[in-house]
Design a protein around this nucleic acid. Structure first.
Length: 423
RNA sequence: GGAGAGGUGGCAGAGUGGUCGAAUGCGCGCGCUUGGAAAGCGCGUGUAGUCGAAAGGCUACCGAGGGUUCGAAUCCCUCCCUCUCCGCCA
């Protein structure tokens, strides 16, 4: 959510942001709602002031006196009017809030212009993705793949996109998670094991509700939502709180399974491990002082990149253009790993600075030493990393002529052996 | 799951229909005092919205949401959460 004062006083700034993100948002109607709401607010507050004044006067009068009774009669009418006006105001407040929620975050000045994913800027390229790998093949075509990653039985037991991981398949998932968590801890992120169901208030604060309701699994009793990412419980950890400025930046990481309904995806995008309804991911999250948030974004991206470097997997970093940036982000880098068998890039992390956009919605602040007043923090997050796609790249890139997969040296201590075997 | 108690400012804790944004204490800040500190004394100390050039004004907030009333922290209803006891359970 944006600052209402900014929208009101500098609508041209917001208009430029909408244009850069290539969104279709009716700013004029937002402004109109804002001004009628404020007029109504004034009227209701004036009526309340009248009531309060009468209240004080009546407190000084004898309870049954003629003056008292006259006041009661007089205020009955005011009360009636206040009630009606207040109902209208409530309605307008809902509309106002809806209108404010429809406005996207402002893209940072360093975000490149562009409308489509093709216009994203390749910010960095790491490793030899174009090196010849004669044995590489799409991971789902590797002989024995179905034994370790059992989609058929997953579909029987639960549904499509819920595989069983068996034997070395389960072991490699656990090794990757452990590796990610250990590395992130070394980088200063405190490990958190959060709830994997959240309530509606939490899902709203991070922006999953109301718009993306259909992407989450919801429980029929209690109306809880299975988390689509650890970002949701983690960001909400400090919801409605005021942090100590000295504690910033706060760095946390969390592993959770992630649940996504992902309606409407087909073809090779969803083959094998590329896209699942349930997958494992470690998320990095920071609450930072506004003055440092872009430095912190660079560091966050570096932290995520380092994981791929240590695994020896080629990757590239994209700086997202305005049109591909996303509604809530001010700036975003996507990290994509090279899957040599599929010969395509797979997104394994998305590192974003939300500035105060999420913090305003979730009311996460810090007390400024300078002013003594609460100010909104900036929030950042990124995966560190998503397991199945890293795994897909690992299987494809490291496949040997003998059909085994070579485990990167950094992962061997966690996996316990040097080769993953499909036999 | 059953029975009971309770949710008030940074904390503790008054307040049971009217001048209560809320006593008092602690904490915190500033000042006086002191060689310095403690104690003591004095003053101050929430958040948000809105109007205003500003000074400042107005409004809201006593777990959340509804209701009763001229008026609600206080009465009624629903929900959430915490604690105690019992039951069940990995």
């Amino acid at each position: 959510m944006l600052d209402a004062k900014l929208v009101r006083e500098s609508p041209e700034v917001v208009r430029a942001a909408i244009a850069k993100k290539h969104l279709d948002v009716d700013l004029d109607s937002v402004l109109a709602i804002d001004s009628t709401w404020r007029v109504q607010l004034q009227e209701v507050e004036h009526l309340r002031a009248t009531q309060k004044a009468a209240n004080a006067a009546m407190a000084a009068l004898a309870k049954g006196s003629p003056e008292f009774l006259a006041k009661v009669a007089e205020m009955k009418a005011v009360a009636q009017q206040a009630k009606e006006r207040d109902a209208v105001l409530k309605d307008m407040e809902d509309k106002f809030r809806q209108a404010m929620l429809s406005l996207p975050n402002l893209p940072h000045a360093s975000v490149p212009e562009g409308r489509t994913p093709e216009e994203n800027v390749v910010y960095a390229l790491h490793g030899a993705h174009d090196e010849a790998r004669p044995h590489a093949r799409p991971h789902w075509e590797i002989p024995g793949f179905d034994k370790l990653f059992d989609f058929a039985r997953g579909a029987k037991v639960t549904g499509a996109g819920f595989p069983f991981y068996v034997g070395d398949g389960a072991r490699i998932v656990r090794a990757l998670l452990n590796f990610f968590l250990e590395e992130n801890a070394k980088a200063g992120y405190v490990e958190v094991n959060p709830p994997i169901f959240v309530n509606a208030a939490s899902a709203t604060a991070t922006g999953q509700l109301p718009d993306k309701e259909g992407q989450m699994y919801e429980t029929t009793v209690d109306h809880l939502y299975a988390v689509p990412t650890a970002e949701v419980p983690l960001t909400n950890f400090y919801r409605d709180e005021i942090l100590d400025e000295a504690a910033l930046p706060v760095r946390r990481c969390a592993y959770t399974p992630c649940f996504r309904r992902e309606a409407g995806s087909y073809g090779k995008d969803v083959r094998g491990l590329n896209r699942l309804h349930q997958f494992d991911k470690v998320e990095l999250l920071k609450w930072v002082h506004p003055a440092t948030s872009y430095d912190e974004l660079d560091k966050l991206r570096d932290d995520a990149e380092r994981l791929l470097q240590k695994l020896g997997l080629p990757y590239r970093v994209l700086l997202m253009c305005g049109g591909d940036l996303g509604f809530a982000q001010a700036k975003k880098y996507d990290i994509e790993v090279w899957a040599a068998g599929q010969k395509r890039w797979l997104e394994v992390s998305s590192c974003s600075n939300f500035e105060a956009f999420q913090a305003r919605r979730a009311q996460i602040r810090f007390r400024s030493k300078e002013t003594g007043k609460p100010e909104l923090v900036h929030t950042l997050n990124g995966s560190g990393l998503a397991v199945p796609r890293v795994l897909a790249a690992l299987l494809e890139n490291n496949l040997q002529s003998d059909g085994r997969v070579k485990i990167p040296a950094a992962l061997v201590p966690h996996f316990g052996k040097e080769f993953l075997s499909f036999a």
